[in-house]
Amino acid sequence: MSPAIPVRCLARPLAGGLVVPWVSLIHNGHAVLGARRAFLQRLCQICSQPLQERFFVIVRPADQQQGYSPEPALHPECQPYTAANCPMLNGTATHYRTRPVLASHPAGRPCTDPSCPCPELTPDEGHTARSGRPADRYEAWMIATRHYRLVPHQEKPDVPVGISLNVPILRKRILREAVLPAEHAALLDLLRTALDLEP
């Protein structure tokens, strides 16, 4: 059974009975990302409220290697709800979606409103590299808010690329294991059969 909608999220809009994350902003009828604002203002990516004493970040092995999580933080009560309902985190999605290359605007087309404070598009090479590939292992790491550190873009120091993982970690939770490529899964099945082990 999925966790109840967190109290912090009760004012958020719903889609299909699920909370629409705050970072999924709607711009002229199209979804765009508000990650940069969440990073800079220390906001939860789901409910948009300020982080308090502790927060969670979602971490893949690649994030651990590069030393930062590219996703905005989550409140401790918003993280379990997100993990239970996000297909990539709860294991129902086995592969990353194949995504088209966006145009220069985050909504995938030019904005014609001169007064619009459009969020800047920060190219995510990670999405391109993962497109269509088997899902990675995902963990949730709890960090004290006093250790909240942003990692700047190498060429644009005022643009954050994520939240630093090179800080004390209070707790780690495994959300899902990685999906093995087909050939590896077949070899593992053969090994299990040979050793008469349960899958």
Rank of each mutant, 00 (worst) to 15 (best):
T92E: 14
L188P: 03
G34L: 07
Y68R: 04
W141R: 00
A83P: 04
V161Y: 02
E177C: 11
R137I: 12
V167T: 04
R173T: 10
V151K: 02
G132P: 00
R54E: 14
V7G: 08
L40D: 09
T112W: 15
S69D: 03
P168R: 06
S115R: 13
P152L: 11
P160E: 04
I5H: 03
H105K: 00
Q64M: 10
H75D: 11
S2V: 13
A140S: 09
L195T: 06
C44S: 06
H27C: 13
N28T: 00
H147K: 02
G132D: 05
L43I: 08
A83C: 06
D136E: 15
A15F: 13
A11S: 15
L191R: 12
A194Y: 06
S104L: 15
E177N: 13
Q64P: 00
V161W: 01
E183R: 04
I163D: 00
Q66K: 12
L74F: 15
Q154E: 12
Y148L: 03
E53W: 05
E177T: 13
Q66H: 08
R130P: 01
R36G: 08
P61F: 10
Y138G: 00
E198N: 11
R149N: 06
I169M: 03
V159Q: 11
D113I: 04
L187G: 04
F56V: 05
A107F: 08
Q41E: 15
P157S: 07
H27I: 02
P106N: 05
A182G: 03
E198F: 02
S164N: 06
C78Q: 07
G162K: 04
T94K: 14
M88P: 01
C111V: 01
I143N: 01
A135V: 06
L175Y: 08
L197I: 01
T112R: 15
I5W: 04
P21H: 03
L51M: 12
A144S: 11
P160I: 10
Y148Q: 01
Q64N: 11
R173Y: 09
I5R: 07
P134V: 01
G91S: 09
A31Q: 10
G29V: 01
S131L: 08
R192Q: 14
R99V: 11
R42S: 09
R171P: 00
P119S: 08
T193D: 15
D136C: 04
G132Y: 01
T145L: 09
A11V: 04
R192T: 01
L74R: 02
G132N: 03
T92L: 14
P199F: 03
T98N: 13
